[in-house]
Amino acid sequence: MNGQAIEFKRVNKWFGKLHVLRDIDLSIASGEVVVVCGPSGSGKSTLIRCVNVLERIQQGDIVVLGQSVTVPGLNLAKLRTRVGMVFQQFNLFAHMTVLQNIMLAPMRVKRVSRDEAERTARALLERVGIPHRADSYPANLSGGQQQRVAIARALAMQPDVMLFDEPTSALDPEMINEVLEVMTDLARDGMTMMCVTHEMGFARRVAHRVIFMDEGQVIEQSEPEAFFAAPKSDRTKQFLSKILSH
C-alpha cells in the first residue's frame, strides 16, 4: 500500500475548557512507523485516541485510511476493525481465556467462523511467542505476556494501522524487550504504526519519524537520527535530556 494512512487536518480538541489538541497537522504514510513522545499531559494519548474515535474532535478533520472521522453516520465498527489499538494497561478481557480474547472480535464483528478464528488466533499466539498459554486466563500471565496477547488480539482483525499507547509503561523492565521485539517484527513486516512511547532505543532502531508534542501541539518532528542528534527546539532538548539521563 502507499499513500497516506492517517491525516490530521488542523485538528483541535477540548476537554471542557482545556485545549488539549491545538491545530494538529500531521500525515502518516502507509507502512510508516511513527513514535510520539512528549511530557505527561501533552496530549499524546488524546491524539492517538482520536484516530479510532475513542475521543471526538471538535474542529478540523482526521482521515483514516481514506475515511473521514467527522462525517455524520460514520460506520465506527468498520473503521475500528481496520485500526488496531494496544493500551498501556493491556485491557484483556478478564473473564476470557487468551484464545477467547483473540477470537471474540473476529467472530462477533467480522462473522468469521469459529474454526477459522481459532486457527488465526493460534497462529498469532505463535507469532507473539506464547502458543502454550492459549487456555490461560489473563490474570495468570505476566505483564509482558498479557501485552503480547493484547497485540495478537488487535492483529486478529487484520488491521491496516496499529496504534500503541505506552505499551511498555506498565511493565517490569525485564519484560519490556519481549514486547518491543514483537512490535519491531510488526514494523519490519510493513505495518503502519503510531506509537506513543518513551522507549528511545525502539524509536532510534525502528521508527521512521519521531514526533515531539507539548501542550497539545506538535513541536518538532524528524527522522530519529536527526531528532536525537540535533533537536531543533529548546523544549525538545529539555525533554530529551530528562528522559535520556535515566
Partner: peptide
C-alpha cells in the same frame, strides 16, 4: 468493570450492545 474493558471492546469494533453482552455483563 473497568472502563478499559469497554474501550478495548469498542476499539476492536464491537458495538455498544455487543460490548455490554460479551464483555461487561459477564464480568
Amino acid at each position: 468493570v473497568s472502563g478499559g474493558q469497554v474501550e478495548a471492546a469498542r476499539a476492536l469494533g464491537l458495538t455498544g450492545v455487543q460490548s455490554m453482552a460479551y464483555v461487561i455483563l459477564p464480568q
